[in-house]
Amino acid sequence: MINIIVFSLIGLGVLFALIRLIAGPSSFDRVVGLDTLNIIITAAIVMIALVLESSLYLDIALAYAILSFLETVVFARFLEGKQ
């Protein structure tokens, strides 16, 4: 029951961030949407670990957090350098 509530809240958050990702007027808005989406998904993976009772998913969440940070920094650098 509690899992369903938490997953619905997370799902709505993902939906809003996705709308910003698709509709954002500039590329910076899109990257902001992507960054927010990544953090929400990291939390969602931890929830999945809880639901499936498997600690392997925690490693996946950690790797996802590292990769999402790299992704944000690389996109920001790329947009900063582009003339």
Partner: peptide, 15 residues
């Protein structure tokens, strides 16, 4: 649940 609410607010704020 509090965490879920704040994640939802984050998405809403970005929108």
């Amino acid at each position: 649940v509090i965490g879920g609410v704040f994640l939802l607010l984050g998405g809403f704020g970005v929108l």
